[in-house]
């Protein structure tokens, strides 16, 4: 029951992002951190543009909007699949890898470094 709700919500979001380009649009979700700190980026700023470009297969542009999300997305998809879409528990070794304490620490450290870098060197500029 819950599973169908999640799948339909995700499909709805993907459909919206496919047809409407978040770039320059006012109607998409704005990052609270970006607005409230007056312009400092959070680690996931630009994720909607990344998803939009991935759906249109523009991988180069998707990468430049948010490299961190682009690279972490396989791990993220793996996390979701091993948690909710694995009833026969065939992927339990992968699941243990995803949930391992060390993996999470690496993820947090990389996220923190990315957070600092993108605010200090605004190479990956998004408005």
């Amino acid at each position: 029951m819950f599973r169908y709700f999640i799948i339909s919500a995700v499909l709805a979001i993907l459909t919206l992002l496919y047809f409407f380009n978040p770039e320059g649009s006012v109607f998409h979700l704005k990052c609270p951190f970006f607005v409230l700190t007056g312009g400092y980026y959070c680690p996931s700023c630009g994720i909607q543009r990344v998803i939009h470009n991935l759906l249109h297969f523009n991988f180069a542009e998707a990468f430049w909007y948010n490299p961190f999300v682009f690279i972490i997305s396989p791990y993220f998809i793996l996390l979701i699949i091993t948690t909710w879409f694995d009833p026969k528990k065939k992927m339990s070794k992968l699941k243990n890898f995803c949930y391992n304490y060390k993996t999470i620490i690496v993820f947090l450290v990389v996220m923190a470094i990315w957070w600092i870098i993108r605010n200090v060197f605004p190479v990956f500029y998004i408005s």
Binding site: L29, P32, F33, C42, P43, S44, I47, V69, F76, L79, I80, T83, W84, Y99, I104, F107, M111, W115
Partner: peptide, 16 residues
């Protein structure tokens, strides 16, 4: 395990 929800909230909501 609540980890997936925690990471989702980091990506889509307020990171701090």
């Amino acid at each position: 395990n609540f980890l997936v929800w925690a990471i989702l909230s980091a990506v889509f909501c307020c990171v701090p």
